[in-house]
Amino acid sequence: MSAAKVVARLPPLPTVRDLVRLYRLRALRQLSQNFLMDQRLIDKIVKVAGRIKCGQVCEVGPGPGGITRAILNRAPERLVVIEKDHRFLPTLEAKACENRMEVIIGDVMGFNMEKCFPEDFRKEWVDEQPNVHLIGNLPFSVSTPLIIKWLEAISERRSAWSYGRVGMTLTFQKEVAERMVAPVTTSQRCRLSIMCQNWCDVRHAFTIPGKAFVPKPDVDVGVVHFIPKVEPIIPLPFKLVEKVVRSIFSFRQKYSIRGAE
């Protein structure tokens, strides 16, 4: 009589909630941190980025690593994570496997991605998008300054965009996300609408309720996907466009008596 076949099963990986408890991590208000615990929503964010299998991914502000795991599950060739808070280093290093993941402790506001990815992933700007992606659940305090900084880099085709029209999947306060996609003539149309839509095709993919985060923020969160345009709508230098748009929207309640020349 043959012996019964025994199938060994590995224990399930710890959840984000388990890791937060294990390392006694606490979201810091001064850094605008909020942990997303719902794995279904985490997977949905990564899905918005598109096909990342065998590609290059840079995750911004991974925190305890919920999105990090979802990215690794989709089998990229390599993942680089940039985290400012040293407390998350143990949880992130625990996910590093087979040299597919690199953890960088630093501030993304000053980080240059010019040589972050392999040379063979570079594409010409007019070609199809490279299999390179930026993904991040951004702290509210840096989300708007960071996207403006990255839009300028897109306009000059530098940093990550020296590799071509690299897409971004990022989180913002819901109201900010709605302004980014606001059409012409709508009440939410603003400086940010024009800046985003001038250099990118922008899509508000879906909204995450605030209750899905710990601690619960006072607002809901919008997931926004950006694809750089081949040519901007206004083919002028970034700083000039930004200055004119900022001036126009400085007095939202005023009337324009004379047209701009």
Rank of each mutant, 00 (worst) to 15 (best):
R122V: 10
P139F: 00
F140S: 14
T144E: 06
K115A: 08
D107E: 04
I148Y: 00
I148H: 02
M101V: 02
N131L: 13
F140Y: 15
V103E: 02
I105W: 00
P118D: 13
D107F: 00
V126K: 13
V132I: 15
F121K: 15
N131Y: 02
G136S: 04
S143H: 03
I104Y: 00
V108D: 08
I104V: 14
P130A: 08
H133D: 02
T144F: 00
E102R: 06
V103A: 04
F111G: 00
E114F: 11
F111M: 06
Q129I: 12
K123R: 15
M109G: 02
V103F: 00
V132T: 11
W150D: 04
K149Q: 14
V142M: 11
D127A: 14
G110A: 05
K149F: 12
V103N: 04
F117L: 04
G136Y: 06
I105G: 09
I104T: 05
P130F: 03
P118M: 04
I104C: 04
F117V: 03
F111Q: 03
V142A: 04
S141P: 03
N137H: 11
E114N: 10
N112L: 13
E114H: 10
C116Q: 13
W125A: 06
L146H: 01
I104L: 13
I105Y: 00
F140Q: 09
K149V: 01
L134T: 08
S141D: 14
M109E: 06
G136D: 02
E128I: 09
V108K: 02
M101Y: 10
E124C: 11
P139T: 00
L138M: 07
G136H: 05
D127H: 14
I105C: 15
V103H: 02
L138S: 03
G136P: 07
I104S: 03
F117C: 09
P139D: 01
I147L: 14
V108T: 06
L146R: 04
G136R: 05
G106I: 06
W150I: 10
V103S: 05
W150C: 02
D107R: 01
G110N: 10
D107W: 01
I135Q: 04
D127Y: 03
V132N: 06
K115N: 11
R122S: 07
I147G: 05
K115W: 07
E102I: 08
K123D: 07
I147N: 07
K115Y: 09
E128V: 09
V126Y: 10
F121S: 08
G110V: 05
G110Q: 07
S141G: 12
K149N: 14
F117K: 06
F140R: 06
I105E: 15
P145W: 11
E128W: 06
N137Y: 01
S143M: 01
